[in-house]
Simulated assay, not measured.
Amino acid sequence: MTAYWLALVDVDDEAAYKEYAQRAPAAIEAYGGRVLARGGRRVGLEGAEPPGRVVIIEFDSVEQAEACFNSPEYQAARALRSDAADARFMIVEGLQ
């Protein structure tokens, strides 16, 4: 069953975030991740103002999505992001 990374990101340091954005895709692709949405236009419809960036990445399973997030490759990229942005990440299981 598919699973999705859903990331809500507010970038504080554009230059440092750019380094993360250059390194993360290789780790995501290595685990079969497919980027469906990254940045782009957001339209708030209800509730709090949307974050600066919304990212959606599809994986073949929750296990694959978790393995990617916990991988040494992604964690190295994540270390760059942690100082550059405030981010909330979650995995959401898709429908059968």
Results as ranks from 00 to 15, higher is better:
residue 30 A to E: 08
residue 21 A to H: 03
residue 73 E to S: 11
residue 58 E to Y: 04
residue 2 T to M: 12
residue 71 S to A: 07
residue 29 E to Y: 02
residue 12 D to V: 12
residue 54 V to W: 00
residue 46 E to C: 12
residue 90 M to E: 05
residue 41 R to I: 11
residue 4 Y to V: 08
residue 27 A to L: 06
residue 71 S to D: 07
residue 91 I to S: 05
residue 95 L to T: 10
residue 61 S to L: 05
residue 17 Y to N: 06
residue 85 A to K: 00
residue 51 P to I: 12
residue 60 D to M: 01
residue 70 N to L: 15
residue 24 A to M: 03
residue 56 I to C: 04
residue 15 A to N: 12
residue 94 G to F: 05
residue 73 E to C: 09
residue 35 V to A: 03
residue 28 I to L: 00
residue 19 E to H: 09
residue 23 R to I: 08
residue 89 F to H: 03
residue 18 K to Y: 10
residue 4 Y to I: 06
residue 90 M to C: 15
residue 34 R to L: 07
residue 75 Q to I: 09
residue 75 Q to S: 07
residue 49 E to R: 15
residue 55 V to T: 09
residue 60 D to R: 13
residue 3 A to Y: 02
residue 22 Q to M: 14
residue 26 A to K: 11
residue 62 V to W: 07
residue 62 V to F: 09
residue 69 F to K: 03
residue 43 V to L: 10
residue 43 V to H: 04
residue 65 A to I: 05
residue 28 I to W: 00
residue 78 R to L: 15
residue 57 I to P: 09
residue 83 D to T: 15
residue 86 D to T: 14
residue 76 A to M: 05
residue 51 P to K: 00
residue 19 E to D: 15
residue 2 T to A: 13
residue 27 A to G: 09
residue 51 P to L: 08
residue 61 S to I: 06
residue 42 R to P: 09
residue 73 E to P: 12
residue 37 A to V: 12
residue 30 A to F: 01
residue 77 A to C: 11
residue 44 G to Q: 10
residue 51 P to W: 01
residue 83 D to A: 15
residue 88 R to S: 15
residue 83 D to L: 15
residue 94 G to N: 05
residue 34 R to T: 13
residue 57 I to C: 08
residue 23 R to S: 14
residue 94 G to K: 02
residue 7 A to C: 11
residue 78 R to S: 14
residue 79 A to R: 03
residue 48 A to V: 13
residue 56 I to L: 06
residue 74 Y to W: 02
residue 61 S to V: 06
residue 2 T to N: 13
residue 11 V to N: 00
residue 45 L to E: 08
residue 66 E to V: 15
residue 40 G to N: 03
residue 83 D to W: 04
residue 8 L to V: 12
residue 32 G to Q: 04
residue 88 R to L: 15
residue 69 F to C: 11
residue 58 E to I: 02
residue 56 I to H: 02
residue 76 A to D: 09
